[in-house]
Amino acid sequence: MGDRAGHAPMNSVQQAFRLLEAVAAHERGAPAERLAREAGLSLDAALRVLGALTKDGYLRRLEGGGFVLGDNPGAGGDHSAQALMNRIRPALASLRDDLSAAAYLTFYEEGEIRIAEIVDGPQTPKVDLWVGFKDAGHATALGKCVLRELDDDARAEYLSRHTLADLTPRTITHREELLRQLESSFPAPVVMDREEYDLGTVCIAVPVYNGTTLGSLGVSFRADRMYRTSQVRESLLSSADRVTRGLSLGG
């Protein structure tokens, strides 16, 4: 993880989401000056972020100069999965850049933990997903985060259908031990896996929600770079809050 003295975690994603939220409140569009005021940003900062969001297709600029959501040209909102991903992808990209780590988003759907999005890069490669999440929920922070947030019945039902496969020498393969770890391993709601899915890789995750659908947001990095965990925790929690709010935009 990058050790950046004086760096304010999540500043860029906070600006992006404040502006996305401000834009979402105006179905017919709003000018940059008003959006900057509502987002609590200077006009220069707002113009810079609005330009980047427009270039990437998250916003669209109207002929009169106002801005609307890129996937919602003022017609009441598009709630497709792709539209939702478009709204939150800037948060994952900013999380990746702020922590110098690949970012992941999962959701618990139809009894399975499924990856919805991965944002990585040349300097922040994702972990080699050599085993699908259907068979590895117990061995990843993303999966364990979901399992910890489930109620007892739902967790028991999931574990009754999934073998705790031995993926590395550090993988937890006994149900009772896994349950103990979920209750006591790391200050809630943060969950970690320490080389349990892939030797040499550590993952940290926190919960997110799309309405009533539970999910998890996490980052992965080399085990020898596991330091400044307080910064990671802060950034993940802040980003998870923004992702949850972004998923509910227009809902």
Rank of each mutant, 00 (worst) to 15 (best):
M1L: 12
A5Y: 10
N11G: 08
Q15Y: 10
R18F: 09
L19Y: 01
A22D: 00
H26P: 02
E27Y: 04
G29D: 02
P31N: 08
E33K: 13
G40L: 14
S42P: 04
L43F: 13
A46K: 00
V49L: 09
V49T: 13
L53I: 02
G57F: 06
Y58R: 14
L59V: 01
G66V: 04
G66N: 08
F67S: 01
V68A: 03
G70A: 11
D71T: 12
A75T: 11
A75D: 08
D78Y: 04
H79T: 07
Q82M: 10
A83C: 13
M85G: 15
I88R: 00
I88M: 03
I88E: 00
R89L: 08
S94Y: 07
S94P: 06
D98G: 10
D98L: 08
A102M: 06
T106E: 08
T106R: 05
T106K: 06
E110W: 12
E110D: 14
I118V: 15
D120H: 11
T124N: 11
P125Q: 13
D128E: 10
H138E: 03
A139T: 03
A139Y: 00
A141Y: 02
L142Y: 04
V146M: 06
L147Q: 04
R148A: 11
E149F: 11
D151T: 09
A156N: 12
H162T: 10
H162M: 09
L164D: 05
L164I: 09
A165R: 14
L167I: 00
L167T: 00
I172W: 00
I172M: 09
T173Y: 03
H174S: 14
R175C: 09
E176K: 13
E177C: 08
L178N: 04
E183R: 15
E183N: 13
S184P: 04
S185A: 13
S185T: 09
F186H: 12
F186S: 07
P187M: 08
A188P: 12
V191I: 15
R194Y: 13
E196N: 04
D198G: 02
L199D: 11
V202I: 14
C203K: 02
V206F: 04
Y209H: 15
N210G: 09
G211K: 11
T213A: 14
T213E: 10
T213S: 14
G215K: 02
L217S: 05
L217K: 06
S220P: 05
R222H: 07
R222S: 08
Y227K: 13
R228I: 07
R233M: 09
E234P: 07
D241S: 15
R245S: 09
